[in-house]
Nucleic acid binder design. Structure first.
Lengths: 182, 182
DNA sequence: AATATACGTCAACATGGCTGACATAAATTT
DNA sequence: AAATTTATGTCAGCCATGTTGACGTATATT
């Protein structure tokens, strides 16, 4: 049995009073807001379990992901993408370096830079996590035709701030949100 | 100038070797994985700034949102939705109660229950935050036709685990991800 | 030679998760 | 009626991951 005790706000109840001018204020998209919440909760939920087995958390996942995807990423670039301080990054990065998931290499042109690369061990972890997330994504894309998938991509792209993009985001935006092919 | 130092992994480079059987393993959806990361980052980024002015964090936002949307929600239901412990919830809920954003009311049938309701002050905060998020959502939905919007909804719905839903999620799933109307 | 940059690190602190233990009131079962 | 279970609150402490501020070292730039 359902046993629902709470009520649900109706769209009508939260519709703002239209001004006499006739300008209808935009209606709050509770539906998308909540779908995004639950979708993202479950999307990051799968990796969490695997990460826990490695003694890692979401912070490690984010670092591993971007280092894998953009080999040779500088520490400074990583800080921009993750929007965290170097002290925060330092903690998780140090663990990933110590445990052999990532290696550093001094920059060619500028030897102060530490370019980051995933090791085979690191690649394996990323692949495992990305596999779980891809399974979920493919399931969610099932039943959508090509134009539907394109709509999803456009939507997600539109949700992203395009002003002042970091270099990684810039690369993604240039590709139109599509995976870059060679 | 772009000044990109890192490279980008190509889809071809990460394509797994097809087995001799001919079964092609599904390709990792790096594109959607990253779009989701950036989209969600910016989606929750707007409210963060406002919340900081109130001395609140994301945890407070989540609580306020669900209490507003499902008036009379029990504490136990809230714990299920947020997937946190009562101790964690207790901390933020106590602040929201003390500062007059939420009120409690003993359950009619079961007087042990504390049913939660947003006060006008609480409603105002939720409306402000939801407004910011709606602006972003509407911008992202612009340019999509009705079938495109439907595709987005289907996608987000498909990303959510449907087994063992909490009561709030159950209500959403019953409505097919659409905002419930009366 | 002086200054600026890229990075690392130490110390301290805040938020928001967690576990375990225990208390109270009200409902349910025996 | 008594025992037990349930819904909630709370104390104490731990952990992960975010923050600020200060400072050091190597290298690049001026």
């Amino acid at each position: 049995m359902a046993d629902i005790n709470f009520s649900v706000r109706s769209a009508a109840a939260t519709k703002a009073n239209p001004e006499i001018s006739g300008a209808r204020p935009a209606e709050t998209r509770w539906d998308i807001i909540e779908l995004l919440f639950f979708a993202y909760r479950d999307f990051v939920g799968d990796p969490d379990d695997v990460l826990a087995e490695f003694g890692f958390g979401r912070a490690h996942h984010r670092v591993m992901h971007f280092v894998h995807r953009y080999p040779g990423l500088k520490v400074a670039d990583l800080l921009d993408v993750l929007r965290i301080t170097k002290q925060s990054l330092g903690r998780v990065l140090k663990q990933l370096l110590d445990e052999g998931y990532i290696v550093q290499k001094a920059g060619d042109a500028d030897r102060r830079q530490r370019l980051l690369f995933a090791t085979p061990k690191g690649e394996a972890l990323v692949a495992k996590l990305a596999g779980l997330q891809t399974d979920r994504i493919l399931r969610a894309l099932q039943g959508l035709d090509a134009s539907g998938v394109e709509a999803v991509r456009k939507f997600l792209l539109g949700m992203i701030d395009h002003d002042d993009p970091d270099k990684v985001l810039e690369a993604i935006l240039r590709a139109g949100g599509k995976t870059v092919k060679e």
